[in-house]
Design a protein around this nucleic acid. Structure first.
Lengths: 341, 341
DNA sequence: GCTAACTATGGTAGCGCTGTCATTTTGCAT
DNA sequence: ATGCAAAATGACAGCGCTACCATAGTTAGC
C-alpha cells in the first residue's frame, strides 16, 4: 500500500474530491461552482452547495493559487506600526483591496532597509499580485528584486525620486519649502526646529531640507534646532521644545518634524502659560485629527495618507502589467492655517 | 507537442529545476540547501548558492507550503485601523512573528461580524499556522469554522467570555468597576459619561456596564450620558462633553469611553477655562502616550495592548496543538491616577 | 578486512487545485 | 425527425515544491 504515504495521521482534510463525490459530480464542476466560472446548471449548483455545506469544505488557496498562478495576495511593507500615519495608509489600501478579495500580507521594516530587503524577498515568494511599499529608501538588492519580479510595485508617501513602477505621494521637500514660505508670509523671522530621528525618517529630513533651503533663500537662518534621538512622540516633542526654549528663549516660531512632536510642543506651551502664536508659534506636519481638536487647532500641513493608500492600490490593480515608464502621482497636501501659527 | 500547455507565454520563471541543472545537482538538494535541512556538503552548498544568485531564483512558497502542508502564514483580524490601539496590538504580534518568518495576513472587519465571517473563511483557505482575532463577538458560523479548523486561535483584548482556544486580554467589565471604585474613593459623586458607538465597540459597553453597576452598588447613579453616534475621536469627545455640560453643568466627574474621547474632553476644558479636577474631573481608558504628555496627564486605565499581541502570538506558537480546555490569560491593567481626576 | 553506522544525494509520488480540450446533453429552428 | 450551435460536464495533466524512501560513498570499530 503506497497511499497515504506522508503524514500517515494527517488530518482527514476535506478536499474537492470528497465534495465532488458527495455531490455526485466531478471535481472540476465543484471548482467551477465555487468560483462562479463557466456555465453551471442550477440543479447542479444546488447539489454542490449542499455538499459544500454538509462537509464544511474550506478550499485550499495554496493549491488553487499554485494551479492558476495567481495568488490573490498583495505585499504591503510599512516602516512602523507605532505611528498612526502608516495604519492610515494601510486603511486606504485595505478599502480598495477588500472588495476584490485580495488579501494584504503586511511587513514592518522598523525603518531598516535590510529588514525591508528580507521582507521583500519573502513576500515575493508568495507570488503576490502587487507590492506596496513605503518610501524609496531601498537597498540595491531590493530594487533589483522588485524590478525583476514582474509584479506591480507602488512606492508610497514620497515622489521625490524615480519610481520603480508607480510612486504615489507628495513632495516632502516642497512641503518643507511651503512651510517656510507660509510662515515667512505670516511675519515670523526667528525660526526654531524640533525634530526626531532623521536616520529612520528620511521624509522628515526632506521636509527639513526644503524648509532650510527656502528660509536661506529669504535670508533667514534656523536659529536653533533640537533633535530627539528616537521615534517621534508627544512627550519627545514636549521635552525637546522645553530644551530648545531654555537655550533660545527669543525664537518666535518652531517648526516640528510632525504633528506628534508639535502637539507635545503645544502641551509645553499650555503647561508653561506661553501664549500660542503671540509668544510662540508652532507648526507641525501630517494634519492629525487630534491636532485639529485642540483648543487652538494646530497649524500644520495635511498630507493625504488615506488617499495615498487608496490611489496606490487602485493604480496597481488597474492592470497587471507595469507601465512602460515609471509613473509618479502627486496627491498633494494642504496647508492648514490653524490657530498656532 | 504538449509541453508548455498553459499560458504559452507564461513568464519564463526560474524554478528549482533550473537552479538544480545549473548547479549540477538534483532539485531536492537545492531545496535542502535553501531550507538548511538535512546534511549538505559545504562544496555542494556553495555550488547551489552560486546558482541561486546567478539565476536570481525566488522560491515559490505556494508550492512549498502546499507540498509540506505548512504555510507560514498567520491570519490576524482586527476591527479597525483608524484607532491606534489595534496597530499597537498588531505590533506586539509582529514582534513575535518576525523572527520566526511567519507572515501576518491582516483583515479588518470594521466591527462587522459578517465581514469577520467572510474574512475568517478566506483566511482559513490559506491554511494559516494560527488565527489571531480581536474580541468574542463572532457569528455562529465563524465560531464553528474556527473550532473545526484545527488551527490555533487566539481571541484578543477581552477575557470576559469563554475562548475557543486561547483568550488574551483583560476584563473590561472589571475595569469599568474599578474606575467607579477609584473615582468614588477620590470623592466624586456626580458622574457623567461620554461615549461612542456601543454597537461596534462592545468592550466600551462592557466597561460602561461595570462602571454603572458598581456605582449603583454604592448608591450612585450616572447623572447624564452623552453618546456620540460614530467611532471615537478627539473631536467627538470635545463636542460631546460640551453638550453634556450644557445640559448638566453641575457634574463633577465625566468618564469617557476611551482616551481619544477623553482628550477631546480635556481640550474642551482647556478651551473653556474649566479647571480640570477642581471644577471637572475627566477619566479615560487606554493609557495612550498622548494623554500622558498632557500638561496634566490624563487619568485613565492603561491597557497592555502591545503585550496582548505579544503574549497571544507567543502562546499560539508554543504548540501547534490546541490546549485541551480553553485558556484565558489576564494581562491586567493599571489605574493611572494622572492629573485630571 | 568486513560489517555497522553515518553522511550525502537522488528518484519519485504526490500536495489540492485549475487550465485546456474533449465529450455529452440540451434547446430550438427547420 | 434532423441538424447544429450552445450549454453542461468531465478527463487529465501539471503548477513547483517537499516528504518519503532508497542508494551510494565514507568512516569507524573490532
Amino acid at each position: 500500500m503506497r497511499t497515504g504515504r506522508r503524514q500517515p495521521e494527517r488530518k482527514q482534510k476535506i478536499t474537492l474530491a470528497e465534495v465532488a463525490k458527495l455531490a455526485g459530480v466531478s471535481e472540476i464542476t465543484v471548482s467551477r461552482v465555487l468560483r462562479n466560472k463557466g456555465a453551471i446548471a442550477e440543479a447542479t449548483r444546488q447539489k454542490v452547495m449542499m455538499a459544500v455545506a454538509e462537509t464544511g469544505y474550506v478550499p485550499n488557496r495554496l493549491a488553487g493559487s499554485l494551479a492558476s498562478a495567481d495568488s490573490n495576495l498583495c505585499g504591503v511593507i510599512i516602516p512602523s506600526l507605532s505611528n498612526i500615519v502608516f495604519p492610515e495608509v494601510l486603511r486606504g489600501i485595505h478599502d480598495v483591496l477588500d472588495p476584490t478579495g485580495i488579501q494584504p500580507v503586511v511587513g514592518v521594516t522598523h525603518y531598516d532597509p535590510h529588514a525591508e530587503e528580507k521582507l521583500v524577498r519573502s513576500l515575493l515568494a508568495w507570488k503576490p499580485q502587487a507590492m506596496l511599499i513605503v518610501g524609496f529608501d531601498h537597498t540595491d538588492a531590493t530594487r533589483l528584486m522588485l524590478k525583476n519580479s514582474e509584479v506591480r510595485v507602488a512606492e508610497l508617501m514620497d515622489i521625490d525620486a524615480e519610481a520603480i513602477d508607480v510612486a504615489v505621494g507628495m513632495s516632502h521637500h516642497k512641503a518643507g519649502a511651503d512651510t517656510a514660505r507660509h510662515l515667512i508670509a505670516r511675519g515670523y523671522r526667528r525660526f526654531g526646529y524640533v525634530g526626531h530621528d532623521w536616520n529612520s525618517d528620511r521624509r522628515a529630513l526632506s521636509r527639513h531640507d526644503g524648509l532650510r533651503m527656502t528660509l536661506a533663500e529669504n535670508g533667514i537662518d534656523i536659529v536653533d534646532e533640537e533633535l530627539f534621538d528616537g521615534p517621534s512622540s508627544t512627550m519627545a516633542g514636549r521635552q525637546s521644545l522645553a530644551r530648545l526654549l531654555s537655550r533660545m528663549p527669543d525664537i518666535d516660531v518652531v517648526v516640528f518634524s510632525n504633528d506628534d512632536m508639535a502637539i507635545g510642543g503645544v502641551y509645553h506651551c499650555l503647561a508653561e502659560g506661553i501664549v500660542l502664536k503671540e509668544q510662540l508659534a508652532i507648526f507641525g506636519f501630517n494634519g492629525l485629527e487630534i491636532g485639529e481638536a485642540l483648543p487652538q487647532p494646530l497649524s500644520t500641513i495635511r498630507s493625504r495618507r488615506f488617499e495615498i493608500g487608496r490611489i496606490a492600490a487602485e493604480k496597481i490593480l488597474e492592470s497587471p502589467e507595469r507601465s512602460a515608464t515609471p509613473l509618479s502621482i502627486d496627491t498633494g497636501y494642504e496647508i492648514v492655517s490653524g490657530g498656532t501659527a
